[in-house]
């Protein structure tokens, strides 16, 4: 695991220097400031409006960060031929994948925490209350971001970056669909569609912006289950990505 740790630190330093990270971060923060500037036409609900749309903005930011950080990693390593010497001696393929994933995941988590801090400052600036569950809600979005990151890695092993963006975005959209909506795509095979739907993630597990905006308390055990679900799904996607990567002929 020392090799994975070292390689993930290298990845972290490399991504920290990339302008993509700072560009996406700036766009998210500007979007949050823009959301707060939009009137809700109801003074008492302005806080709910900003929170609801702000957390949605952070979630979309998680998708942009996952794509911006990871879609190019493997293709560029392969193009610049730095991949071969890496996996020839110091790293095995799973160590390469985990190193890249952990480095990108740490940067993504830090960036999302900055956006959460930005949302808090915007709420403070507009003299709106900051709910106590805002940080746990961001934590769930971070876990969702890790799932998206693992999906981006999965697609990056057999598609080009321009194709990776729409495929990951499509999976992001499908994962928001309910089971009945998904079965509605092919109503003649409900059993098959339900089984396929189970293999796709349930992104609604990570959404707690509605209860936070309306002042509902969420049981701590739910956070644990949701985080566990997200981590297990990310592990599943990474294992599938690794299976594809192990089958690739790199010559």
């Amino acid at each position: 695991m020392k090799a994975v740790f070292t390689f993930s630190l290298m990845t972290l330093r490399m991504l920290f220097r990339k302008r993509t990270l700072w560009g996406i971060l700036l766009v998210i923060l500007l979007a949050l400031a823009g959301i707060a500037a939009v009137p809700s036409f109801d003074v008492s609900n302005q806080g709910r409006f900003v929170l609801d749309f702000g957390l949605f903005g952070i979630e979309v930011g998680a998708l942009l960060l996952a794509l911006g950080l990871a879609a190019n990693l493997y293709p560029r390593d392969r193009e610049t031929r730095t991949l071969m010497p890496l996996i020839a001696v110091p790293l095995s393929r799973w160590q390469y994948l985990l190193g890249r994933f952990f480095g990108a995941a740490l940067i993504q988590a830090a960036a999302l925490l900055v956006t959460c801090l930005g949302l808090m400052l915007i709420l403070l600036f507009h003299k709106l209350p900051i709910p106590g569950d805002l940080l746990p809600a961001t934590l769930l979005i971070i876990v969702e971001g890790w799932f998206l990151l693992s999906t981006v890695f999965f697609f990056s092993f057999f598609t080009s970056p321009p194709l990776n963006w729409p495929l990951t975005t499509m999976l992001f959209i499908v994962s928001q669909m309910s089971v009945s909506e998904f079965v509605g795509i092919l109503p003649s095979a409900p059993g098959l569609m339900r089984a396929v739907r189970m293999l796709l993630p349930h992104a609604d597990v990570f959404h707690i912006k509605d209860p936070i905006a309306h002042g509902f308390e969420i049981e701590p055990v739910y956070f644990l289950i949701a985080i566990f679900y997200g981590l297990c799904y990310s592990a599943f996607m990474l294992s599938v990505a690794l299976a594809v990567f192990r089958g690739r002929d790199l010559k």
């Binding site: 609604d204 959404h207 055990v221 739910y222 679900y229 981590l231 297990c232 799904y233």
Partner: peptide, 21 residues
């Protein structure tokens, strides 16, 4: 009808998570 408000579905979530693991 969202997962955070439906404790009766948390067992299914846990089952799905274990399946993926």
């Amino acid at each position: 009808n969202q997962p955070w408000a439906a404790p009766f579905i948390w067992g299914k979530l846990f089952r799905d998570a274990l399946t993926f693991l």
